[in-house]
């Protein structure tokens, strides 16, 4: 009936992926609206890594050494934008105490954005002259060349505090251990779950998982950010509920019996009846994970006729002549 609504992106996860996405978007927008009306009613728990920012900058000011910040080695995306947003807040405090700041970038677009944002922060704090080309630097877009460059800056300038926030990979421990070797206070957070253990082992304070995204809401208390954070929490509660319900219901289903099993082969689903015994009787078998309703919910049944579609081809275009242009 709704064949015209069948899309390639729904073959793997069905409509559940889009439904959950739209649910999360709704939660976020609703809570942003709520926060705009009354932001004070929304609570954010204490995040010790972010409370340490003032201590770190204070220490750098006392020692007369710079604060180093690295927004990871990822491209310009939500992660690096969030890192720059946090760095803007850190720079705001550092600029008030005239503490030098070093931001090292491994990606040119991230560098360009960071440069503009940090320059604006200095200007807004009335110390525009303190912003120098060394404040935000492009080091290299090669992973270990960047690691070597940043380690060199950490050693030569004896930075007092380091903020490693963003998408980090194998170079994370090089930065963390080099900073540790010179006794710098370290606040770190990576969206890569594989790097978080390294940061926990080597750094003083670590933002784990979505604490990284909560940071700007925590630091600025802007209603839009706080509302968005509460929306994320609503989504987490619903997803956790779905996980618990799915586990229990799926486990219950697997205690039942069936006479046919679902099989998926190269994206095409089919039902395979249980083979009959020598006397022709079919003995029901235990339900497999692939037969459960929970599994079907996330992996929709895809019959062969849905994925084998014949379309008319466009007529062959004549050879393009010079001087052409436009359709």
């Amino acid at each position: 009936m709704f064949n015209w609504l069948q899309g390639e992106q729904y073959l793997d996860t069905g409509w559940i992926g889009i439904a959950v996405t739209l649910m999360v978007v709704t939660f976020i927008l609703v809570n942003i609206r709520r926060a705009n009306k009354n932001a004070d009613s929304l609570f954010i728990r204490r995040i010790s890594g972010l409370n340490a920012i003032d201590d770190a900058i204070g220490r750098a000011t006392e020692m007369g050494r710079p604060v180093l910040m690295v927004p990871g080695i990822g491209v310009l995306d939500a992660i690096s934008v969030q890192a720059i947003n946090i760095f803007a807040q850190v720079t705001k405090t550092a600029a008030q105490f005239a503490t030098p700041v070093r931001i090292c970038c491994a990606n040119a677009p991230v560098f360009a954005v960071a440069q503009e944002v940090i320059r604006d922060v200095y200007t807004q704090q009335g110390v525009g002259d303190k912003f120098t080309p060394e404040t935000v630097q492009f080091i290299s877009d090669q992973q270990f060349a960047f690691a070597a460059g940043v380690s060199g800056i950490i050693h030569r300038e004896k930075v007092a505090a380091t903020f490693l926030l963003g998408a980090f990979y194998a170079e994370s421990l090089i930065f963390a251990e080099t900073s540790n070797a010179i006794g710098a206070i370290q606040v770190a957070g990576s969206t890569q779950s594989t790097q978080t253990p390294f940061f926990i082992a080597a750094c003083d304070y670590v933002l784990i998982g979505d604490e990284f995204y909560a940071a700007s809401a925590y630091l600025t208390r802007q209603p839009v950010l706080v509302g968005s954070l509460v929306g994320q929490d609503w989504a987490k509660i619903v997803i956790a509920g779905m996980v618990i319900f799915g586990t229990l219901f799926g486990s219950y289903e697997m205690t039942g019996m069936t006479t046919e099993h679902r099989t998926d082969n190269q994206g095409v689903s089919s039902m395979t009846p249980v083979e009959a015994g020598p006397d022709g009787t079919v003995t029901p078998e235990r339900v497999k994970k692939s037969d459960t309703m929970v599994n079907r919910f996330f992996n929709p049944y895809t019959p062969e006729e849905l994925v084998t579609i014949e379309r008319e081809k466009k007529p062959a275009e004549p050879e393009a002549e010079t001087g052409g242009g436009g359709e």
């Binding site: 992660i79 779950s193 998982g209 979505d210 995204y213 994320q232």
Partner: peptide
């Protein structure tokens, strides 16, 4: 996976706001 759920939700919220 629990940490990743939080990270992806944060990225979605950030992307939506931007």
């Amino acid at each position: 996976r629990a940490i990743d759920f939080g990270v992806f939700l944060g990225a979605l919220a950030m992307g939506l706001r931007l």
